[in-house]
Design a protein around this nucleic acid. Structure first.
Lengths: 136, 136
DNA sequence: ATTTTTACTTGCATTTTGCAAGCAAACAAA
DNA sequence: TTTGTTTGCTTGCAAAATGCAAGTAAAAAT
């Protein structure tokens, strides 16, 4: 049970109270862009998050309603994570981080970038639809 | 001279290498939304950043080309900070943090929210124009 | 029955943050 | 011209967060 303290009434500050660290948004990125959904999936990502940090962030994200954790139907020792509506609405933030990051560290994800350049709203909506369909 | 290590080639990860903490984007928010431009200005914000952290973040932001520091023309013991193009292009990220934060912690900045809802692209461009005019 | 998979937890070292006090150059007032 | 104020830091130390390696445990596969 981690307690996140609201530092002010500012919306940017409020968002950063939850998202302002080096790992949280990377977990969400994995769910949104790579359809990852388990502890092992997140652990395998290139940035090499530590096991204790991953467990902590997953707990916090669940606690504050960004994700839902359920037992895998096939394997009862495996858990599957999915995004809630609250988490799905972070997609635009992830997309802007993608656009800026690609510009200052090319090439980035060229296919996604092209889609965003061509139709940002539509691309975001499509990602969000996919994630909504994954809600159990 | 702080060294930021790139954790992977992913654009989201790259963005978070610089922006992934509780304070950096709040300083940029102050510059973008409140036209703040000095150490004292940033220190006065509601979230109460510590003096050493503020000095550290301003140094890092300058070092990596997000902001420029110059001596105030009137007072030679005062410094003025302005955003570079690299920093100005973070405005879309700040706007999405504003939108999400306002939704899950209302009311947020209602005037800005209305402007974004009405014309997101135009609102962002207008903010960016203003910041470009402030480049010395 | 034994090994593997999956998801953690624990202990400890290192790094970062937070807090309070101190410092120094430029400026303003007496 | 001295004295106090403004501005922007730096320093030292305590507390919290992170990172690393090893250990644990339930379920599944062999």
């Amino acid at each position: 049970m981690k307690t996140i303290t609201k530092r002010s009434g500012c919306p940017v500050s409020f968002s950063l109270d939850f998202l302002g660290d080096k790992w949280t948004l990377l977990i969400l990125r994995d769910m949104v862009l790579s359809d990852k959904n388990s502890y092992g999936d997140f652990l395998a990502s290139n940035e090499r998050i530590a096991t204790n940090i991953l467990a902590d962030r997953l707990n916090t994200l669940e606690q504050y309603g960004f994700i839902i954790k359920r037992v895998s139907p096939e394997k009862k020792n495996k858990f599957l994570f999915s995004l809630t509506e609250k988490g799905i609405e972070l997609v635009p933030i992830l997309m802007e981080l993608t656009i800026w990051g690609s510009k200052y560290n090319p090439p980035g994800n060229e296919k996604l970038l092209k889609a965003l350049a061509d139709d940002k709203v539509g691309t975001i909506l499509k990602l969000q639809q996919k994630l909504r369909n994954a809600i159990p």
